[in-house]
Amino acid sequence: MPCLRKKSLPKLSLILLAASLAAFGQRTYSSLGSPLSPEEIKSFDMIVGPEGKELPPGKGTVKEGADVYAKKCVACHGPNGQGGAVQRLVSGSPGNPKLGPFKDTEKTTLSYYPFPTIAWDYVNRAMPANKPGSLTPDEVYSVVAWLYYMNGIIGESEVLDAKSLLKVQMPNRDGFVPAKPVWPPNPKKPSWY
C-alpha cells in the first residue's frame, strides 16, 4: 500500500487492536464459532413472537383462504377444519366464537390460542406437513383469515396483513394464568400445581 508510510504503522495496529478488543473482548473461546451476518440471520429468523415483529409483508382474505385450505389442508384436517385425521382446528362457528372453558379437542382449535400470531407462525414454518415452509406469506395470511372466520373470531370481509393480524381479538386471550408467564413462579407453588 503506497499511501501507508512506515511511521503510521504502529498507529494502525493500535486502532486494529482496539477494534478487535471491542468486538471480541468478552469472548473466552474466540477461535470457535463464526459470526453471523444480518443476511444469514434473515434467511432463518422466521419464528414470529406475540408482537409480530417478524411478520413479513403480504395479505390475504377469508375467501382466498378457503381456496388455500381446500387445496392444501383439507386432506388431513377435514372439511371445515374438523373431522380429519389430525388436529381439529375449528370450534365455535362464524359469528359465534367459542368461549372457555375448553375441553379435549377444543384445545387444539385456533380459538384456544392466546395470541393471533401463533397460528400464523406455525402454519408458515411447519405446514403443510408434506412440504413445510412452502406456503407464500399471502397464502398463510389468507388461510389463517379463513380459519379465524370459521372459528367466529373475525368477519367474512376482513383482510389480514402484518398490521391487522395483530389487532385480532383472541377469545381465550385471558384464559391463562398468571396474566404473564413468569419464571420462577412467585410465590412458589406446590409440586402438584
Binding site: 419464528i47 406475540p50 372457555g100 372453558p101 384445545k107 390460542y113 392466546p114 406455525y122 384464559g175 408467564p181
Partner: peptide, 19 residues
C-alpha cells in the same frame, strides 16, 4: 434466538396447557 419476552409458540399454547 434470545428474546425479551416469552414467545409461546404453537405446541406450548395448544397441547401443553390444561384448563
Amino acid at each position: 434466538k434470545v428474546v425479551d419476552q416469552p414467545y409461546i409458540t404453537w405446541s406450548e399454547a395448544m397441547n401443553h396447557s390444561i384448563p
